[in-house]
Amino acid sequence: MPNISRDEVAHLAKLARLGVTDEELDTFAPQLDVILESVAKVGEVVGTEQDVPPTSHAVELTNVFREDEVRQGLTQEQALSGAPAAEEGRFRVPRILGEEQ
């Protein structure tokens, strides 16, 4: 069913913000194709069974809440300690092209 093209791989890479080289596209396209074809098997079994709700979690917990109490967090120095670049107590990032959502 999948038959994933080079263009589709390029589109996925873009969605996932992954730079990929032409060479990688050549390698990934057939590999993803094989993997997706193989995993598409999940559709078979489900199609034949009635009344199968999805399980997103193995544990059946609900309503796990925290008290609304302030907890000590990080200092500004700790927060910025791993930053590739920082300025005026903030994380410095390259210019942003897209709009806020």
Binding site: R66, D68, E69, V70, R71, Q72, G73, T75, Q76, A79, L80, E88, G89, R90, F91
Partner: peptide, 19 residues
């Protein structure tokens, strides 16, 4: 609320950045 939705950090307007 006193704190953020998913952690215990204070929910206050403004403040020194990243504190």
């Amino acid at each position: 609320t006193n704190t953020k939705m998913f952690c215990g950090c204070a929910n206050v307007f403004g403040g020194e950045p990243n504190t």
